[in-house]
């Protein structure tokens, strides 16, 4: 046990969670990462709908998608499902 771990007097009762999952980066699980061809991409957001990890992002300000590699686990669903074949999985 590390010294970072809290004692019973410091934590909330009943196992109420005190950290958001976003603090836990799953991005280092992957061996492949998605790379998008911006020319081919028509921003249909199919990749967004099929991502298990919410790692495809949508920025309404610039109206564009992106990949959050902090969470992407490299499953490759986005590449398979992209109707424009605009995503390629490449070794990190």
């Amino acid at each position: 046990m590390t010294s970072e771990q809290k004692g019973w007097k410091e934590i909330p009762i009943a196992g109420v969670c005190w950290r958001p999952a976003t603090d836990y980066l799953t991005g280092d699980w992957k061996t492949l990462k998605p790379v998008r061809d911006k020319e081919k991409c028509n921003k249909c957001l199919i990749c967004y709908m099929f991502c298990p990890d919410g790692a495809v992002t949508w920025d309404p300000e610039i109206e564009d998608i992106g990949f959050n590699l902090d969470y992407c686990k490299g499953c490759g669903i986005c590449a398979v499902e992209c109707p424009k074949k605009a995503i390629e999985m490449v070794h990190e």
Binding site: M1, Q5, I11, P12, I13, A14, G15, V16, C17, W18, R19, P20
Partner: peptide, 30 residues
């Protein structure tokens, strides 16, 4: 009140205004 995952003290109940998570997978560390 309990301190939930958003870092502030909130009522210890299922409340959409102040969401908390109850009944997690609690392993040997806690």
């Amino acid at each position: 009140l309990v301190r939930g995952h958003r870092g502030k003290l909130v009522p210890f109940k299922l409340d959409p205004e102040n969401p908390i998570t109850m009944g997690p997978l609690d392993l040997y560390d806690y």
